[in-house]
Design a protein around this nucleic acid. Structure first.
Lengths: 332, 332
DNA sequence: TTGTAAGCGTTATCAT
DNA sequence: ATGATAACGCTTACAA
């Protein structure tokens, strides 16, 4: 039965029982050349005593924790939930454990975890932060950012937002839309969403498609007004756009709900494409047409990059993961 | 700037700079009686050197990690996401970090984490497991279970399922229902859902209300058939029940969708109450009438109990958290 | 009140 | 191939 021994059994006990030295036991544990016969002896002793190496003693020597901190705004959210799930899964491949931190966008809590790296509590950090902590973060700790880049040279992994924006425009056009609009909100430090809008706009310009840009930089509260304004002005009496790219699925949903209230039918009057492709759980299906971020691949790459960093290898500063259009009911 | 020093600064360096002994520095760190003047000296040195105690060295001595493992099926799910969020939040109050493990109901992965307690990697465990790991778990490791109880004396925290079942019946009756049914699925080791059904049935019996029990013990796949069967038989030509208690919101949704396909209107023809009251994110609203599990309180209590356990204090084997009925659109 | 030093369990170096 | 031992950074008796 597990956990049966209150008293700790140490490498010394194993050595004594096996009739060898502690050094030899250590070698067996770490797979360093020992005679098969000796190895067997030691392994038997380990089994018999139910021995587990004490990770503190080991950590004190080799300065590794095999633990990584994941900092995100909150895991209570389908997007971050899916991401956290995938990060943990990928860390497990490297035998790394994940400490989870809900920063709730509080930069102090974020910094606390960065301190942990120095305390040797974690080997590295994967961070999704939209706070302005750039000036506190030094580049010589192993840290990988997801979804946004810092002003400093902290490597980041994100979906190919620019391409995603292009794709959204492309798909709306393919579906027959003639008058496009992009709507969404972003902060100064969040370039992910900005890039989506830029990609969209670029495509329209390059292909001479009529479009209007309603990308708003500022706070959530003001954006509500901004959004209402946009809808009233453009959909109350006439229908000014037949294709809308909402910068996130959340905004897409909001737009759809509000359009419904104005008696505008989606997708017949207006077609809508969102961004993210969030699923509430692994078997969930996507309803809104969207540009899906492959969170499994983003997680995989972020973890891979972090392990490189932990082992002092260099990695590219930017890693872009391709996105895909998923058709839902909001496009024809 | 954080993380600026590659070379580790130790307690010795602090002692030297402050002109005191390492013992004194240690005392300052651990708030043990030192002269104010000395304290100041040491604290200045700490600040100047940007010193952070090495948790491994400390852990080796005092055998504490200030880390707790949370084992759950998957964080990629609104219910567990909310729970994980709240657990982390409450652990933080005690200065405890949370290692997250998605077991995906794989008992081997669960056991791996239980081993970690022995390795001193974590101080304790909070586990939501529906696997049959009872025989592997010893009671002398600090572990608190959520939502189910083990055959062994492992303390658990859960919502008051029995009361919840009673409440569901009560509310359906209050809303005018005369012919009730409870439907849902449970496994042999999951007594949470079983208790909900029992509570429901008991209330009906006690109050002489017409009811039928469709609680199914077995696998998900078979249950699909079971559910279809139930609906066809009871709602295809006639309407046999006007009030249904679904053991979880998920099942409630399924029932509603399938009833819609049979052209049965909810709540006019049939009223439905679910269980859980899951929110996708903190600002989400509840749509289905439901018995809500207060995951914040469950988390709080689970963490509290675990800290007691870690400090060798005894705690009650069972902790029940009251539930509340939340009215949604599925009841009148 | 402060300093000294042993020891926590492991790894790694150096002999053997 | 194996054994003896120093060292990792800290806490904690105990001594001063």
């Amino acid at each position: 039965m597990l956990g049966e021994f209150k008293i700790m059994v140490t490498i010394k006990d194993v050595a004594k029982l096996a009739g060898v030295s502690v050094g030899t036991v250590s070698k067996v544990i770490n797979n360093i050349g020992v005679k098969p016969r000796t190895k067997e002896l030691v392994e038997n002793a380990i089994k018999e005593l139910n021995y587990e190496p004490n990770i503190y003693a080991r950590g004190l020597k080799i300065n590794k924790t095999n633990t990584v901190a994941l900092i995100l705004p909150t895991v209570w959210n389908p997007f971050f939930g899916e991401l956290a799930f995938n990060i943990e899964k990928n860390l497990a491949k490297y035998n790394l454990k994940m400490i989870l931190c809900n920063s709730e966008n509080n930069y102090k809590k974020e910094l606390e975890y960065i301190t942990m790296v120095k305390q040797n509590k974690v080997d590295g950090i994967i961070s999704i932060s939209y706070s302005d902590i750039d000036s506190y973060v030094s580049t010589n700790i192993p840290i990988v950012s997801i979804d946004r880049f810092f002003t400093k040279a902290i490597p980041y992994v994100s979906s190919d937002n620019l391409k995603g924006g292009i794709m959204a425009a492309e798909e709306l056009v393919k579906a027959g839309c003639k008058k496009l609009a992009v709507i969404g909100r972003g902060s100064k430090v969040n370039n992910s969403t900005t890039n989506r809008a830029i990609g969209f706009v670029n495509y329209c310009k390059d292909n001479k498609i009529q479009y209007k840009d309603y990308y708003y930089v500022g706070h959530t509260k003001e954006f509500e007004e901004f959004l209402d304004d946009f809808l009233i002005k453009n959909f109350k009496d006439k229908i000014n756009f037949d294709g809308i790219f909402a910068i996130t699925d959340e905004y897409a949903e909001e737009v759809i709900n509000k359009l419904n209230k104005l008696n505008i039918n989606v997708p017949n009057d207006v077609q809508i494409i969102g961004y993210d492709g969030v699923k509430s759980h692994s078997k969930d299906t996507i309803k809104i047409s969207t540009i899906r971020q492959p969170l499994d691949l983003i997680a995989e790459k972020a973890v891979y990059n972090l392990t490189k960093l932990i082992n002092q290898k260099s990695i590219p500063n930017e890693t872009l993961i391709p996105v895909r259009f998923i058709k839902g009911y909001t496009t024809k």
